[in-house]
Simulated assay, not measured.
Amino acid sequence: MLRLGFPVIGVSDLPRAVTFWTAALNLTETGERASARWRALDHSDGSGHALGLMYSESPVEEYPRLHLDLLVDTSEEQLAEISRPVELGAHQVDWNNYPSEADFVVLADPDGNRFCVVDLSKAPSGS
C-alpha cells in the first residue's frame, strides 16, 4: 500500500545540512540507510522520521512550489525562531511576494532552500 513518507531536501553539502537541520529543529541523525548522498533525521523524542537530506547537484529554485512551513504560536516566538536559524547559518530572503499583513517570513537554509516561519496567531481563519 502506498503511504506518505517524510519531506526530503536536496542539499549540496550534506554534513553542513545535517548540522543545520538537527540544530534548527532539534532532530537527531539516524544511521538508517546513511550514505555519502543520504541522511535521515528523526524527531529527538523518538517519535519517528522528520526529514530526509539528499545530496543534489541541481540549482535551488528561486520560487519553489514546495517548501517547509515551520510553525509558532505567537509573534514573539516568530521573532525568536527567525533569529535562531539565522544564527545557525540561514538567511532571511528578500521576498517580493509577501501579502499585506503576512503571517510568514521566508528564510533560506545554508544551501539556499527556502522555508517559512509562520505565526499561527496571524494566520487567516477558515471562515
Rank of each mutant, 00 (worst) to 15 (best):
G112R: 04
S35N: 04
L53A: 07
E101S: 15
S75I: 00
V72S: 01
Q78L: 04
P110Y: 05
S12P: 00
A108F: 03
G112N: 07
A108K: 09
W21Q: 09
E57V: 13
F115A: 12
R84K: 15
V11R: 11
R114Y: 04
N97Y: 13
R33G: 11
N96I: 11
E62S: 12
E61G: 03
G48A: 04
L2P: 13
H91D: 15
R84G: 08
R39M: 09
N97P: 00
S12C: 03
S56G: 06
R33S: 14
V117I: 14
G10Y: 04
T19Y: 00
L51G: 10
H49Q: 13
E57L: 09
D111T: 14
W38N: 02
W38V: 06
S125R: 15
A40V: 06
P59N: 07
K122V: 09
P59F: 00
S121K: 05
E101T: 14
N26K: 13
L71G: 06
D42I: 06
L107D: 11
A108R: 08
L107W: 08
A40C: 07
D111P: 06
G52V: 12
H91Q: 15
G48P: 01
D109V: 06
E76W: 00
S56V: 02
S83I: 05
S100P: 06
D73I: 00
F6Q: 15
N97S: 13
R3T: 15
N113M: 05
L41N: 07
P110R: 08
F104N: 09
E57I: 11
S127E: 09
C116L: 09
D94M: 12
L41D: 11
Y63T: 15
S47F: 02
V60L: 05
P64W: 03
V18L: 08
A90Y: 11
I9K: 05
A90I: 11
G126K: 13
R3Y: 13
E29C: 08
V105L: 03
N96M: 09
L68M: 12
W95Q: 13
V72N: 03
I9C: 02
I82L: 05
Y63C: 10
G112K: 05
E81Y: 08
G10I: 06
A40Y: 00
R39K: 15
R33A: 14
E76G: 10
Q92L: 10
P64T: 12
S35K: 03
D119N: 14
V86G: 05
W95Y: 15
E81H: 11
G46W: 00
R16T: 14
P15Y: 12
G89F: 02
K122L: 15
M1L: 10
D119S: 02
T30L: 01
Y55E: 14
T19A: 08
L4H: 04
Q92R: 15
E61F: 02
G31Y: 00
P64Q: 04
F20N: 10
T22W: 02
H49R: 13
S56E: 03
G112A: 06
G31K: 05
K122D: 02
N113H: 14
L68G: 07
F104G: 08
A102I: 00
L51R: 10
V118L: 09
G10A: 07
L41A: 06
L70Y: 09
G31R: 07
S125L: 13
L27Y: 07
R3Q: 15
